[in-house]
């Protein structure tokens, strides 16, 4: 078992004929994901460079391929619309990789997806991977370790891309496998958040422990801490990036900003520690922190 995606997941790529979309569709295919087609307006009826059918609309793609997941590489000005199209076409999971989408667009798109009952991952994220089964996104596949019989597995939730790879690699080199890794993205308004995913990992029999990687900005980690205290019985380790970040500056991610005294690393670390979470003080000891519980 795993959460969100597995061997059976049928995936289309919106933006499959663009540079990033084509490149990463190829990497996902190599990894073994069931990529079944793509969407590129005006290019319907052709084949992609991978030999996959290309459709003009998401509705055509879903009808023809039976896809339930869409991976989106559409440029920022049109990306929120693409996410809504995927939901309207019947996709139950939308993985939005695109960076730089206007916040108001995401506010509208998230509400639309909620109303349609579709789940959203991202935007501005690496995507989601269930190691050994299905990779949807831009993370390097080989650093992950699939669950095997008897091995201990962690589920990973993270606001950062490369910092997730760091945590994954530290687990893999220690022999700890990963059930599913979800990059929830660095934007202020997004899809699935810590709380929803903590709940899914808590209920997933293949997940023995959970790593969450947060950063400055907003109060999602504080809310996650309260949820962990109330509902999560599996061990949780965490790292919070941005302890040295100055207030009022956006640190690369649109959502990574301390404003009006809210969103500091200290506040998040304190809340997580109070909830019994092992908080690593260095990005180099995330694997160590979770290994202590397994």
């Amino acid at each position: 078992m795993s959460i969100l995606v597995n061997k059976q997941s049928r995936v289309i790529c919106q933006g499959i004929t663009g540079n990033a979309g084509a490149f990463h569709t190829a990497r996902c295919l190599e990894y073994g994901s069931q990529m079944v087609g793509g969407v590129s307006p005006g290019k319907g009826g052709t084949k992609s460079e991978h030999g996959l059918p290309v459709f003009n609309t998401c509705h055509d793609a879903v009808k023809d391929t039976g896809a339930e997941v869409s991976m989106i590489f559409v440029p920022a000005p049109f990306a929120a619309d693409a996410a809504m199209e995927a939901a309207d076409a019947g996709c139950s999971l939308v993985v939005l990789i695109t960076e730089g989408i206007p916040t108001l667009d995401m506010s509208r798109a998230r509400k639309y997806l909620d109303d349609k009952g579709a789940l959203l991952i991202g935007p501005n994220c690496p995507g989601v991977i269930t190691p050994g089964e299905c990779k949807i996104g831009i993370m390097p596949g080989y650093i992950h370790k699939p669950c095997e019989n008897g091995s201990k597995s962690v589920g990973i939730i993270s606001r950062s891309g490369t910092l997730t790879y760091e945590a994954v690699w530290q687990c893999t080199t220690r022999g700890i496998s990963q059930s599913t890794c979800v990059g929830i993205g660095g934007d202020p308004v997004k899809g699935l958040n810590f709380i929803e995913l903590l709940g899914m990992f808590q209920d997933d029999p293949k997940t023995d422990a959970i790593i969450m990687i947060g950063e400055i900005g907003g109060t999602d980690e504080e809310q996650a801490a309260a949820y962990i205290q109330a509902k999560v019985t599996k061990p949780v380790a965490a790292f919070i990036a941005g302890q040295t970040a100055p207030p009022g500056k956006r640190m690369g991610h649109a959502g990574a900003i301390i404003s009006g005294g809210e969103g500091t690393a200290d506040s998040k670390i304190e809340a997580l520690k109070e909830a019994g979470v092992s908080v690593a003080d260095s990005p180099a000891t995330i694997g160590e922190a979770i290994a202590a519980h397994l």
């Binding site: 993270s158 606001r159 950062s160 891309g161 490369t162 910092l163 997730t164 760091e166 660095g186 990687i213 950063e215 400055i216 790292f239 990036a241 941005g242 302890q243 040295t244 970040a245 640190m251 690369g252 991610h253 990574a256 690393a265 003080d281 260095s282 990005p283 180099a284």
Partner: peptide, 21 residues
């Protein structure tokens, strides 16, 4: 650094080892 999260974490790491980013 590549990646915003890792870039922030790298600053934190420098501080942790006694330096200033």
């Amino acid at each position: 650094v590549n990646g915003a999260g890792l870039a922030m974490a790298t600053m934190d790491l420098i501080k942790l080892h006694g330096g200033e980013p």
